[in-house]
């Protein structure tokens, strides 16, 4: 049987820390991979919406923020709840599910672009509310410190790295498994049918509102899971500004660059986009700084200031030359290249 890309990806990822015991480079790679796993979970949540169902959501960062803050409030010892890691994560997922449902119920009937602006607005609402309700959320300071996760009596510390690595990888594997199961069932079939032809699907008895709402809530739940993991990783909820429009856009870019509607594509996309966005640019900046090639007053020489330019150009060129993404699903590829025969 053919080994699927996403399982191969997870398998190779699982080996990285083991190799890291012997090769220092693999160890630093492993440290860099942890945020990528979290972004991959976020992007997989968006993939359910945009990739499978064809709903554009421009506010996934809001669900991530809700997840992070819910997790922080549930675990931090300045509040009376003080749940452990596992119950807190479960409750956070529930919070995301409910938030998705509450936003979706009144708005899911809207046509694509109207829904896009509603999700965009929701992102703003959440961000501003978190900023304004400083009695609860501590405003721009964020909620901290958060206790580390525990697993069977073992306490995660910030200086260790392998336990975190496997924790996030485990969650990612779980999310991949659930998404794949959904995709290959009547649920995924209905989602894809809605993406292709909503009216025909509804004439076949698929209730588009119900299925879209399901996609919306499940996607939101995954995004808030990503938020909870992110908060536990930082040891802080982070400030509301960390979950702005850019995060939503990065998630969207991961889905599109990787390959819409394809779980393996999303994993690859997370690797490429987050990798390029932070790691490569950072390394390059450090290199230039080390060799004293950057003047602090000149805006043009710092590579960090070219970030948006490069990111933007990459998106434009990607859409121009490879709109189906690096690893497209068979269906999306056929939609974008209607005149080519599919591989048999």
């Amino acid at each position: 049987m053919k080994l699927r890309f996403h399982w191969a990806f997870l398998l190779v990822a699982a080996l990285v820390p083991v190799v890291g015991l012997f090769v220092p480079a693999a160890r630093s790679l492993g440290e860099l991979l942890r945020p990528i796993f979290i972004m991959a979970i976020l992007a997989l949540g968006l993939n359910i919406l945009t990739g499978f169902t064809g709903i554009l959501n421009l506010g996934v960062a809001a669900f991530m923020a809700l997840g992070a803050y819910a997790y922080a409030i549930l675990t931090c010892d300045i509040y009376p709840f003080q749940f452990g890691f596992w119950p807190a994560v479960m409750l956070t997922v529930l919070v995301g599910l409910l938030a998705g449902l509450m936003l979706g119920l009144p708005t899911i009937r809207l046509r694509g672009d109207y829904l896009a602006i509603v999700t965009l607005g929701f992102g703003e609402i959440v961000q501003d509310s978190l900023k304004n309700m400083d009695v609860i959320t501590k405003g721009t300071q964020g909620i901290n410190p958060l206790p580390g996760p525990t697993f069977a009596g073992y306490m995660f510390r910030s200086e260790t790295y392998a336990p975190w690595y496997y924790l996030f990888l485990g969650f990612l594997a779980l999310v991949v498994l659930l998404n794949r199961n959904l995709q290959r069932s009547r649920v995924g079939r209905a989602w894809i049918a809605i993406r292709e032809d909503e009216l025909a699907a509804s004439c076949m008895g698929v209730n588009p509102m119900k299925m879209k709402l399901l996609a919306f809530s499940l996607g939101a739940a995954q995004c808030s899971l990503a938020g909870a993991l992110w908060a536990s990783f930082l040891g802080s909820s982070g400030e509301p500004g960390n979950y702005d429009f850019q995060v939503s856009i990065i998630a969207l870019c991961i889905v599109i660059v990787g390959g819409m509607g394809n779980i393996a594509g999303v994993l690859l996309g997370a690797l490429v986009v987050v990798g390029c966005n932070s790691l490569v640019l950072e390394t390059f900046t450090n290199f230039l700084k080390a060799h004293e090639l950057i003047s602090s007053t000149n805006v043009y020489t710092a590579p960090g200031n070219w970030k948006y330019m490069l990111f933007g150009l990459a998106l434009i060129l990607m859409m121009r030359f490879k709109p189906e993404g690096l690893l497209p699903s068979r269906q999306v590829k056929a939609e974008l290249h209607p005149h080519e025969p599919p591989p048999s």
Binding site: T50, L56, G112, I249, L252, C253, I256, M260, V299, Y300, N305, W306, K307, Y308, M309, F311, G312, L313, A314, L315, I316, M318, M319, R320, P323, E335, L336
Partner: peptide
């Protein structure tokens, strides 16, 4: 113009890219 026949998402993502480029131009 090259994306007229592509799915709706392609020009939208392209536009997001353009907005990033503009933002950076504004900074410069």
């Amino acid at each position: 113009r090259h994306l007229r026949d592509a799915t709706k998402l392609a020009p939208l993502v392209s536009a997001i890219g353009v907005s990033f480029v503009f933002l950076n131009l504004g900074l410069f």
